[in-house]
Design a protein around this nucleic acid. Structure first.
Length: 492
RNA sequence: GCCGCGUUCGUCUAGGGGUUUAGGACGCCGCCCUUUCACGGCGGUAACACGGGUUCAAAUCCCGUACGCGGUACCA
């Protein structure tokens, strides 16, 4: 592998960055880091009609959140600035002129309505979508059908025009995709792609090729939806006299049912699609990254839990899967729990703080960490800690089903007795509180379960949670006794 | 329609001619641990789309069919 690897992630600021985009960015990042190369971020903002103001900030925030730092790009700058296509107009113009001069591109004056009319006229059941190409261009209004004087007259008059690529017929365009191997197309299938739009902006195809070349991009790693446009790009590289970069087309991420993972589609299934949603729902960035990396790739052995650095270490494009991968929220959540638990206690505490405080008000760090120590194995999300609000404040009510099942006629009595004995338990440790309860059970001739379940209910309000005595110790003796007595009063 | 790319358990996938009674993970089920719920451990469920070929031998190679996805824009 060349040691001057340069890859880029080139999103369009048309909305919130979605997980498919993040995975593309991730693979590019991994490839760059794996080969000691450079990761470039380029904003492809050539479509003014779809431009969304907040999108760029969201892209930057999302990448930063995921830990995918880039080496060149917006705000950061770099030797190939600017990194916004909207600011690289002169460059595109120069190469468009070159293509026109060499006869590989031509001016076209057809209005959208005229093109639609052509499609309508030529449409047949066998060919429902006629294109502007070698078979139709000679009946349109362009520099190939109009004489030079007329073309110049229209240009001078300020008529709207586009510049189209003059695609040759019957040539084979082939290339070796890094993940799929040899792929070939017949150029007869490709249309005379617009290169320069009537608003003066380049289309994706032109801008992409010009930028990838001028930014010295060595490897293009992007979604499979771009595979069909490779022949256009190959032709452009050839006409411009440039060497095309290596290319890798990644399989798509599919919805849980195998369809397209569109926003609408995903919403219906309760699957978030933008990175921002995952962030807001409390997914750990390490987990999302790990999960996304495995949607279409694996290291070839049986390891599954990876940090970003470990992914860098193990990554290779060649191991990319060839088929689309369905999104599986269950697995993501499992991975989230795994990553969460692997974090240091204090880090989990900080990640849980917001949710906990939203529920019970300000909490001291020591208290928060004690709670994490108790609940860690039970957390899928850091925010789940807030479900154990009883660790921070006395329960206000008692789980109905739990009371039905666990609170017996003698429960209030036993709970009061336990509270009384705890008064004398100076140590108040896991061992001592348990010993006190066992002794009580023996003295009262009651089963251990006859006491512990009501005690749990009385002190936490619920029937599930961490070890009972560990929990009591975290609550402290005063709170424990207070809660026991109050519950005995309330539940009778 | 045409072009392209795909197709191994429900899902993510390993495996790329004999090592395979097709392996792992999530999910699901059962058991163990246990005061509960988790965690963890153990076990179970479950797949090579179909049809032809090539070969002594095919999940693995070739062809076809079916199905899925992508593309077919002055969107990216």
């Amino acid at each position: 592998m060349a040691d001057n690897v340069r890859v880029r992630f080139a999103p369009s600021p048309t909305g919130l960055l979605h997980i498919g985009g993040l995975r593309t960015a991730l693979y590019n990042y991994l490839f760059a880091r794996r080969h000691g190369g450079t990761f470039v971020l380029r904003i492809e903002d050539t479509d003014r009609s779809r431009y969304v103001e907040e999108a760029e900030a969201d892209i930057l925030d999302s990448l930063a959140w995921a830990g995918l730092d880039f080496d060149e790009g917006p705000e950061k700058g770099g030797p190939h600035a600017p990194y916004y296509q909207s600011e690289r107009g002169d460059l595109y113009k120069r190469y468009v002129d070159q293509l026109i001069a060499s006869g590989d591109a031509y001016y076209a004056f057809d209005t959208p309505a005229e093109i639609d009319a052509m499609r309508e006229r030529l449409k047949t059941p066998d060919n429902p979508t006629p294109t502007y190409d070698a078979s139709t261009r000679m009946e349109m209004a362009n520099a190939l059908t109009l004489d030079a004087v007329e073309v110049q007259r229209r240009l001078d008059a300020g008529d709207e025009f586009v510049v189209r690529l003059k695609v040759p017929r019957g040539r084979s365009a082939r290339f070796e995709d890094l993940v799929r191997g040899w792929v070939s197309f017949d150029t007869s299938e490709v249309d005379d792609q617009v290169l320069l739009k009537s608003d003066g902006m380049p289309t994706y195809h032109l801008a992409n090729v010009v930028d990838d070349h001028t930014m010295d991009i060595t490897h293009v790693i992007r979604g499979e939806e771009w595979l069909p446009s490779v022949p256009k790009h190959l032709l452009l590289y050839e006409f411009l006299g440039w060497e095309p970069p290596a290319m890798a087309h990644l399989p798509l991420i599919l919805s849980p049912t195998g369809g397209k993972l569109s926003k609408r589609n995903a919403d219906k299934m309760g699957i978030p699609v933008s990175v921002k949603d995952y962030r807001e729902e409390g997914y750990e960035p390490e987990a999302l990254v790990n999960f996304l990396a495995f949607l279409g790739w694996n290291p070839g052995d049986e390891r599954e839990l990876f940090s970003l650095d470990e992914l860098v270490e193990a990554y290779s494009v060649e191991r990319t899967a060839h088929s689309g991968a369905q999104f599986d929220l269950d697995k993501l959540q499992w991975i989230n729990g795994q990553h969460l638990r692997a974090l240091p206690m204090s880090e989990i505490a900080e990640r849980a703080r917001e949710a906990v405080e939203a529920r019970v008000g300000p909490v001291e760090t020591g208290q928060l960490e004690a709670a994490v120590g108790l609940m860690r194995e039970r957390l899928t999300f850091a925010r789940d800690l807030a479900d154990a609000a009883y660790l921070f404040e006395d329960p206000t009510d008692f789980e109905e089903a739990g009371v039905q099942k666990r609170w017996k006629d003698d429960s209030a009595h036993l709970v009061r007795l336990y509270a009384d004995r705890l008064e004398a338990d100076v140590a108040f440790t896991v061992e001592s509180t348990e010993a006190v309860m066992r002794q009580l059970a023996e003295d009262e001739g009651a089963g251990f379960g006859r006491i512990i379940h009501p005690v749990r209910l009385a002190t936490t309000g619920v029937t599930v949670g961490a070890g009972m005595f560990e929990t009591l110790v975290v609550l402290g003796r005063d709170a424990t006794i207070r809660r026991l007595r109050r519950a005995a009063d309330v539940l009778g």
